[in-house]
């Protein structure tokens, strides 16, 4: 017998699984926006030490005179942190829901998913999280950087990338980011319901190209350091 349903109006959008997913997608987009800016900044390394450090300085000075030194940077950092928290908290909530949704697993399971990348989101995301922590300790605070010199980002970058252990962490991190974006950028259209008939076909190539461009863009810097183009 089907029992009569209770009152079902969801309390808030976020209380639904779809709402959490939407929050995640929006936070992911914020993080994505940051990645683009960050990539542009990183590419300054190709123009030499001066330009790169100038840019780093610019980050701290920007916003003056309305904002004091580093104030705008902190605002951005807070937004980023908030986005990351939303992204990760929603992920954890949804993940636990999905785990509960199939307590007894299959003996054989071969789901025909769209792209392998979709199945790397969970561990890939965790890898990114670990990478970011490492990365901040490495290039921002210098705690794990043996040759760290405060306020010399170019130096820190170049010496950091020459270290084989550190640079392999970067390579792995970038691959994780690439896969994450490959699925994530396609997925975000789906989650936000942007599936205009005319552009729908382009979603997958778009995600592919952007993910590839970002991964290669980021990797170009350590690659340039190894080959001596930079440094």
């Amino acid at each position: 017998m089907t029992p009569a349903g209770a009152a079902r109006e969801p309390v808030s959008l976020y209380s639904t699984s779809i709402g959490k997913k939407i929050a995640m997608a929006l936070a992911g987009l914020v993080l994505f926006g940051y990645l683009i800016l960050h990539l542009i900044g990183n590419l300054k390394a190709f123009f030499g030490e001066e330009k790169f450090n100038e840019y780093s300085e610019f980050l701290r000075a920007v916003g003056a005179p309305v904002f004091g030194r580093s104030e705008l940077l902190w605002i951005v950092r807070i937004i980023l942190l908030a986005a990351l928290i939303v992204h990760v908290v929603a992920f954890v909530q949804l993940w636990s829901k999905s785990r509960a949704a199939r307590r007894i697993g299959y003996r054989r399971f071969d789901p025909e998913v769209f792209s392998r990348a979709s199945r790397t989101m969970k561990w890939g995301g965790i890898a990114i999280l670990l990478f970011v922590v490492y990365h901040i300790l490495h290039l921002t605070t210098g705690d794990v950087h043996p040759q760290f010199i405060a306020h010399s980002p170019y130096h820190n970058l170049v010496t950091g990338m020459r270290d084989p252990l550190a640079s392999s962490i970067y390579v792995i991190g970038m691959i994780a980011v690439g896969l994450h974006l490959y699925h994530g950028l396609w997925s975000v259209f789906q989650t936000m319901g942007w599936n205009n008939k005319r552009y729908k076909r382009l979603r997958r190539p778009f995600a592919m190209i952007v993910a590839l461009a970002i991964t290669l863009g980021f990797l170009s810097v350590p690659f340039a350091v190894w080959t001596g183009i930079v440094g």
Binding site: M121, W186, S187
Partner: peptide, 17 residues
């Protein structure tokens, strides 16, 4: 959607399977 969530289904991560 609320009922779907109440029924212990998982959420969609756009796997496409």
């Amino acid at each position: 959607v609320a009922q779907m969530d109440d029924e212990h289904f998982g959420h969609c991560t756009n796997h496409g399977a």
